[in-house]
């Protein structure tokens, strides 16, 4: 667990720096690939909701600090994304990469809508067309492109046991 936390910490800090200095320059419409969100979801799928929520919180906090943004905003969204991806990971097989695509799709839409609500509350708005067509759809497409390779990378860094691979915990 400690080793996992250390590995996740290094990976997410590195990803936050890459996101603000490199991937934020990749722009389709007004959308950018959200490297950190995809990584948090991938880690949460493999290590569960508590670990995912903690990873999301710290990753968001690092991103808010290094990009000089309102502290706590991204960490709140990534905490929720990490938790729910972790819950999804509990009810799906870890041997398959398909849950990653589903989780990234739900996570991107959820974080996008959550971000819109939070920014609206803080007085920053976007028009609906700009939000859905300009930002959310391109971001979703770019995140889905990242989902397979990053999930594969996370499976190497956070290996699952053969028993865990087959295990599916029932929801009820």
């Amino acid at each position: 667990m400690t080793l996992d936390a250390l590995k996740a910490g290094v990976l997410l800090v590195f990803a936050a720096l890459v996101q603000v200095s490199i991937t934020s320059n990749i722009e389709v419409g007004s959308g950018h690939p959200d490297l950190l969100l995809v990584l948090v979801i991938a880690i949460a799928l493999l290590r569960g909701p508590a670990f995912g929520a903690a990873a999301g919180f710290w990753a968001g906090l690092v991103l808010d600090v290094v990009s000089f943004q309102t502290l706590g905003l991204t960490s709140l969204l990534l905490t929720l994304a990490g938790y729910f991806a972790g819950r999804l990971g509990e009810v799906t097989k870890k041997s398959s990469a398909h849950p990653a695509l589903l989780a990234v799709t739900i996570g991107t839409i959820g974080v996008g809508l959550g971000s819109a609500v939070l920014h609206f509350m803080l007085g920053e708005t976007l028009s609906a067309s700009e939000f859905f067509v300009g930002m959310l759809l391109p971001t979703l497409a770019l995140n889905l492109l990242l989902a397979y390779p990053l999930y594969g990378l996370c499976r190497r860094i956070f290996p699952v046991t053969p028993r865990e691979r087959r295990q599916v915990i029932p929801v009820v």
């Binding site: 934020s24 950018h32 943004q69």
Partner: peptide, 14 residues
């Protein structure tokens, strides 16, 4: 310019 914010809401650079 070393960093750009990751969303369209924040029209800021570092």
């Amino acid at each position: 310019v070393v960093a750009r914010p990751p969303t369209a809401y924040d029209q800021e650079i570092l």
